[in-house]
């Protein structure tokens, strides 16, 4: 078997045939910012935070296959600037009021913002009206915080086998729907142990009565940045992956 390698910011990174750029990077301990990507699920490519330059062209690292000899740029001022702007877009599109959100300190959107030294949202806010679904006794859905990454859609479909969630609408009106006649979570088979309930990178899907359990100072991103946390969690998964 020949050894395959790409370079990321000049560093040699080995990969296995069929791996995506982000899979190869993660296995080698190189962090590429991402939100909709989770190594446990089919690559998605919608948030565009993992945009890297491959041989001079912008690509999503989470969906683009690694090919021998690729020169990938990742941690550059230009790319991080782009990622900051994309993160800012996600902030103005929804209603992300961190101070009143139970996920604060454990939220990946927020953590990516911290990582990229995002100090403001820059763009004008959309302040959309979005529905909160508190119908279920144990799980709640606050669409204000949804970033449309479809991780819950994928988890519910591929792991839980329940298809509780889907994206609907179009363009800026795209929104998360619940698969029941009433459109309410209470009328689905979702349960608190479902993967879909725990995969949300932001505070859109939460288990009720567990908010603010961890004091400030002990939350995930209080002292560790998302590159460290993400690599620690995802390196093992990436190591196992044999490519998609």
């Amino acid at each position: 078997m020949t050894a395959h390698t790409i370079t990321i910011d000049g560093q040699q990174v080995p990969f296995i045939e069929g791996q995506t750029i982000i899979e190869a990077a993660t296995a080698a301990g190189v962090y590429i910012p991402h939100l909709c990507h989770n190594p446990e699920f089919t690559p998605h490519g919608s948030c565009k935070l993992c945009t890297v330059k491959v041989n001079g062209r912008n690509c999503s690292a989470c969906t683009f296959p690694a090919v021998d000899g690729q020169e990938v740029l990742n941690d550059t001022e230009e790319l991080n600037e782009t990622r900051r702007a994309i993160t800012q877009m996600l902030f103005v599109e929804g209603n992300h009021f961190c101070p009143s959100c139970e996920k604060s300190g454990n939220c990946q959107l927020q953590a990516v913002g911290y990582f990229l030294n995002m100090l403001d949202a820059h763009f004008p806010f959309f302040y959309p009206s979005r529905e909160v679904d508190a119908s279920h006794p144990e799980v709640m859905l606050d669409r204000d915080r949804c970033i449309l990454c479809e991780l819950c859609v994928r988890a519910s479909r591929d792991v839980d086998g329940k298809n509780v969630f889907a994206l609907s609408g179009r363009g800026i009106h795209t929104h998360l729907i619940v698969n029941s006649t009433s459109g309410k979570l209470a009328d689905t088979e979702i349960s608190v142990d479902d993967k879909a309930v725990h995969v949300c990178p932001v505070g859109a899907i939460l288990v009720k009565r567990t908010g603010f359990e961890v004091p400030i100072g002990q939350r995930i991103y209080d002292h560790q940045d998302i590159s460290e946390v993400s690599l620690a969690m995802e390196e093992s998964v990436a190591g196992e992956s044999h490519g998609g």
Partner: peptide, 21 residues
């Protein structure tokens, strides 16, 4: 374009509306 964006990716979904505004 803002009207026809499918809404899948962040830059087009949000960006085309920002451009319109």
């Amino acid at each position: 374009f803002a009207h026809e964006s499918c809404g899948f990716c962040t830059p087009c979904r949000v960006g085309t509306s920002l451009l319109r505004n």
